[in-house]
Design a binder for these strands. Structure first.
Length: 605
DNA sequence: GTTAGGG
DNA sequence: CCCTAAC
């Protein structure tokens, strides 16, 4: 007779058994969240500015464009998935899922730009933009899949992602008040924040110890901003911008998959970024950077070029969600898809008169970009593939270019890209990467003149580049082998539907909690996206969910009936560990779960 | 390749 | 959902 461990679930109903677990190796923690697509977009604008702007920029600031909501043009295709439900157990499965193809996003002008004359004056789509009130608006209508249609600028590089900028970042000579920025950003919350609660913002914030002054801005937006100020983001951006020193050996696409803000942290993606470009520019971006776009030039300063990238247009996204999914989850899915697409690695291309400018060392004037005429024909492209970045130090850990096609393998929500367009630039010009990267080894400019005069804000809130960068370097030792190329994408989250939960519960009732492989085979064999580990994890959360009060539960509510069964099964199998595992499901057909539960407190069986 | 748990 | 340890 084997004495079983007494379950400590007697009073609380149940709980996980306290099984001592072998110490696990200390894993390095890297505060690193998936680079958000928007970051990149924002950084693009920042880079543009930093490269264009003259040093006299002392009153520059970027206005955040607010996009209350972005309309999505979604093609929907119903993909009936014939349910080969068999498995004898009549375990029901999702009848079918809907596949959505997101073609584009648009961000209606909600008037938020009243203080940014630049973008307001015009919203031209294609090149050949008219000039008005001195503002030169350059167009960057890069699009691959129809819509605006590729224009001359785009011809050369057919591989352009087709991302257009539109009012995602605007340059303005006017310094925006915090509240202003705050307000604009705040409204973005519902659209871009993937997670459900905002609590973690605070956690992250505290982790990065921002100045108390900055804390005066307590809005969620600011918190997000603070969050974005974390060194990891800077590091990422620096890399994205190609400013990292080659010897730094930081991989451009370095992304740590694991977040460390608590359980289920992965669900809480925050997408607000506030960036201060390496030079003198300050960039505040909303996350709504996706839609079509154009670039504007401000007139005021001679010898300087100011641009406003107005929007992005994303290539087609293939999204698959169960029909039972909520609108919220759909939004998150789309958000993730976009993130995956852009964070997977993008590069910026500069086109003048349709010709790609590859020499990053050239000045704008040398390239002729600064001239009015060319400005009119200035274009930018976002291309898939790792942003130009130094190669990693660890030779044994080769930098594997991100291949968007690999992403889709892990996620149905991954963007669908034309394989043939991948890495065109790199492939065609192998040396291009090296050239561009290793030529910009100059550290960031140290001047932080622009924003520091900002009265009510702590300088640190503005993220002085030097220190933060240093911090970033400190936090993540560059030599630390990037371990796995960090290229793998986290799978998109796919909440279990009630139907799936039911199937899982039933399977566990019959098979127990130690045979996940069998559970998978029995009830989720056709659900390719559900691994047995997923099922195990789901069960874990189900048990937890069932143990907490309904008020504490989140997400699509699971019928109490199911939760009851979860507890019952949990209790039963806790006491019958492995004992019946050899038996078939039939052996438990008439399993008296209630009795089993009642016996939970028993010390032995 | 699975299972079990921590993150 | 990811990552590991331990089978």
């Amino acid at each position: 007779m084997v004495f079983k461990r007494k379950l400590d679930c007697v009073s609380v109903g149940f709980d996980y058994p306290n099984i001592p677990k072998a110490p696990r190796s200390c894993r390095r923690k890297v505060i690193n969240k998936r680079t958000d697509a928007m970051d990149l977009l924002a950084s693009l604008a920042g880079k543009l500015l930093e490269e264009c702007e003259s040093s006299s920029a002392s009153s520059n600031a970027f206005e955040v464009n607010n996009h209350e909501s972005f309309g999505k043009e979604i093609k929907q295709e119903d993909h009936l998935k014939s349910e080969s439900s068999d498995q004898g157990n009549s375990v029901s499965r999702p009848a079918y899922e809907k596949t959505c193809v997101v073609n584009s996003f648009s961000f209606p002008d909600d008037g938020i730009l009243e203080r940014t004359p630049v973008s307001e004056t015009k919203n031209v789509k294609c090149e050949g933009v008219a000039e008005e009130t001195g503002d030169v608006i350059v167009n960057t209508g890069f699009e691959r899949d129809g819509g605006l249609g590729a224009d001359a600028c785009n011809l050369e590089d057919a591989t352009a992602l087709g991302v257009q900028f539109q009012k995602s970042v605007c340059v303005d000579g006017d310094l925006k008040s915090p509240s202003r920025v705050n307000g604009s950003l705040a409204r973005q919350g519902n659209h871009t924040k993937l997670g459900r609660d905002d609590d973690d913002d605070e956690k992250l914030y505290s982790y990065h110890k921002f100045s108390s002054k900055f804390k005066s801005y307590r809005s969620p937006t600011i918190r997000r901003i603070r969050k974005s100020l974390s060194s990891k983001y800077w590091k990422q951006m620096a890399k994205d911008l190609g400013h990292y020193r080659a010897d730094a050996g930081v991989k451009a696409l370095y992304r740590k998959r694991k977040s460390c803000y608590g359980y289920n942290a992965w669900q809480r993606e925050t997408n607000y970024k506030r960036r201060r470009s390496p030079d003198r520019s300050s960039v505040v971006t909303s996350e709504g950077g996706l839609s079509s776009g154009s670039v504007s030039k401000l007139p005021e300063k001679r010898d300087s070029v100011k641009l406003s990238i107005k929007s992005f247009r994303i290539p087609e996204l293939f999204i698959e969600v169960p029909e039972t999914a909520t609108v919220g989850s759909l939004k998150r899915t789309v958000m993730e898809a976009v993130s995956v697409l852009l964070s997977g690695g993008i590069r910026v291309g500069v086109l003048v008169h349709g010709k790609k400018i590859r020499d990053d060392k050239k000045t704008l004037s040398q390239t002729g970009i600064s001239s009015e005429e060319n400005l009119t024909n200035l274009g930018f492209t976002l291309e898939p593939g790792p942003s130009k970045a130094p190669l990693p130090l660890c030779s044994q850990d080769p930098l594997v270019p991100i291949d968007p096609t690999n992403l889709s393998e892990r996620s149905a929500a991954s963007p669908t890209l034309d394989t043939e367009t991948h890495h065109s630039d790199d492939v065609a010009n192998p040396g291009n990467i090296v050239d561009n990267n290793h030529l910009e080894l100059v550290p960031y400019q140290k001047e932080i003149t622009v924003d520091e005069e900002k009265p009510s804000s702590d300088p640190r809130a503005l993220v002085p580049l030097p220190s933060l960068e240093a911090e970033a370097l400190a936090i993540v030792p560059l030599n630390q082998k990037p371990k796995r190329t960090e290229l793998a994408q986290r799978r998109t989250r796919r909440p279990f539907s009630v139907t799936e939960v039911e199937a899982l519960v039933q399977a566990v009732e019959e098979l127990g909690t130690g045979r996940w492989r069998d559970v998978k085979l029995r009830a989720f064999e056709d659900a390719d996206h559900r691994t047995y580990v997923d099922l195990k994890d789901k069960w874990k959360t189900l048990v937890h969910t069932a143990s907490i009060s309904p008020q504490q539960r989140r997400g699509e509510p699971v019928p109490q009936e199911l939760l009851d069964r979860v507890l019952r099964a949990y209790g039963y199998w806790s006491q019958h560990q492995g004992k019946h595992q050899g038996r078939g499901a039939a052996a438990h057909k008439d399993l008296d779960m209630n009795r089993g539960r009642a016996l939970e407190s028993g010390v032995s069986v």
